[in-house]
């Protein structure tokens, strides 16, 4: 059954807000995965990053998107935690890995096994505007586990000006999303994969 709240939020709020008020411009939208399983990785500066990524998809496609969010920030019982789970299909991850917690990628694996699209911010948090922080390697481990699943890098620009970390009220300013070439696990080392991803993000910000 289709989730009416999610679909209508997408139709009435997310797309008009990002495509209309913020004039979201997409380059190489044809590289986006239209069906799962797939992994979207993006740079992260603002809560609006997730809205921008959702607005790249149609309401039907967006129903299969799932953002990975930090368990300590998007707490169960908080409003932002409810919105993340209910509207953005969020699954939570621990930022600090504890051996007792078991497989840290179990939630992500379940999403990919279900044929859905995972949204990951490898920086792990909203970084400094316009500066790519050190990437966390979780996405490489995930890609190694699912070598047939495409990893699509999306570089967002301008979003950090709409609602920077710490700001409360968003402003309408123009936003662009550059979709990079989908990548697959090619064997070798996790560090190689992360280096490749870093190059993809750096290349997109120049293009």
């Amino acid at each position: 059954m289709r989730d009416l709240l999610r679909t209508w939020c997408h139709r009435v709020v997310i797309r008009p807000l990002m495509r209309g008020a913020c004039g979201l411009r997409v380059s190489h939208g044809e590289r986006l995965p239209r069906t799962g399983p797939a992994i979207l990785v993006a740079n992260h500066n603002s809560h609006f990053d997730t809205l921008a990524l959702f607005a790249l998809f149609s309401p039907r496609e967006a129903a299969t998107l799932r953002a990975v969010v930090a368990r300590d920030y998007f707490r169960v019982g908080s409003l932002i935690g409810w919105i993340a789970r209910r509207i953005f299909g969020a699954i939570t991850a621990d930022r600090a890995w504890r051996p007792a917690a078991g497989d840290p990628l179990a939630g992500c694996s379940r999403v990919l096994d279900a044929g859905e699209i995972l949204i990951l911010y490898p920086e792990g948090t909203r970084g400094m505007p316009g500066v790519m922080s050190e990437l966390k390697a979780g996405v490489a481990y995930l890609a190694r586990r699912y070598p047939k699943v495409p990893v699509v890098p999306v570089t967002l620009s301008g979003v950090e000006r709409i609602l920077p970390k710490g700001a409360v009220v968003p402003l309408p300013l123009t936003v662009a999303a550059h979709v990079g070439v989908p990548r697959y696990w090619s064997g070798g080392d996790c560090r190689d994969f992360m280096a490749e991803l870093r190059v993809a993000f750096a290349g997109a910000s120049e293009a």
Partner: peptide, 25 residues
């Protein structure tokens, strides 16, 4: 609105100026 939005999107604003952008809109 479109002219103002594209102007404010390319001008070098800092975090403290966000209220000023509101005034413009």
């Amino acid at each position: 609105f479109l002219v103002l939005r594209e102007y404010l999107s390319v001008t070098p604003f800092r975090a403290g100026d966000r209220v000023g952008l509101f005034v413009a809109y």
